[in-house]
Amino acid sequence: MKGILSIVLLVMSNTFMTLAWYGHLKFKEWKWFENAGIVAIVLISWGIALFEYFFQVPANRIGFKGNGGPFTLLQLKVIQEVISITVFLIFALVFFKTEQLRPNHLVAFVLIVIAVYLVFKK
């Protein structure tokens, strides 16, 4: 159960982080942000990223083997990277209609999933 909770929290965490890192690229399309300067955009993104920490820190604490969770530190990191790329891919395809998923992107993603398998292999 701790493993599933940790993964769910990592998905939430990465959703906020992706929005903070890349969401501002869409802000200019919204009337209320069209004249915002870089400092304002950075502060807004930073505010969004704060929520990422509300999920990331508990996810790692709950999931870490040293705290009674099921994952080693390396496993947590690799899981987080796969989740990060998955969330980003969905975000890019849904919000940025100019992005296209190509076969080489799929191969790269499969290789990352293989990396997860290798990290869990004893």
Rank of each mutant, 00 (worst) to 15 (best):
I44M: 08
I41E: 07
G68D: 02
F96A: 00
Q56F: 13
F95T: 09
N104D: 15
T86F: 11
S45P: 01
L43K: 10
G69K: 00
I48E: 02
F88W: 08
T72A: 07
V87N: 03
Q56C: 10
L73P: 12
E34N: 13
L101A: 13
G69H: 01
T86P: 07
G63Y: 00
S84E: 10
A49D: 08
F71P: 00
G37H: 06
A92C: 07
A49Y: 08
V42K: 08
F51P: 02
K65P: 05
V39C: 06
K97I: 04
G69C: 05
W46N: 13
F71T: 04
N35G: 09
R61D: 10
A92P: 05
L43V: 11
L93K: 10
V94L: 03
Q75W: 03
G66N: 14
I62D: 00
F88Q: 05
L101E: 09
T86L: 06
L101I: 15
Q100P: 05
K77F: 14
K65H: 14
R61G: 05
I41F: 02
I44V: 11
Y53M: 13
N104A: 15
F95S: 04
P58N: 04
K77H: 13
L76V: 00
K65V: 12
P58V: 01
H105M: 12
F64T: 06
N104K: 15
A59M: 08
L50W: 15
L101N: 07
H105S: 14
R102H: 13
Q75T: 06
T98K: 15
G47A: 09
V94Q: 02
P103H: 06
V42S: 12
L101V: 13
T72V: 09
V78I: 12
E52N: 14
K97P: 01
P103A: 04
K65R: 14
P70I: 01
A40R: 12
V78W: 02
N67K: 10
F71M: 08
S84N: 09
E52W: 07
V78Q: 02
I44F: 12
I38S: 11
F55A: 10
I38T: 13
V57M: 02
G37E: 07
Q75F: 03
E34R: 14
L89W: 11
N104H: 15
R102V: 12
F54E: 08
A59I: 08
Q80N: 15
Y53C: 11
I83V: 07
F54N: 09
V82R: 09
P70L: 00
A59S: 11
F54V: 09
N35F: 09
V78D: 04
K77V: 13
A49W: 05
P103S: 10
G37I: 06
L74F: 14
S45G: 06
E99H: 05
V87M: 04
I38W: 10
I48N: 04
L43H: 02
A36E: 07
G63I: 01
L43M: 13
N35E: 03
K97F: 02
F88S: 08
Q100I: 07
H105P: 09
V57Y: 07
K97E: 07
I44R: 06
W46D: 12
A40V: 11
L73F: 15
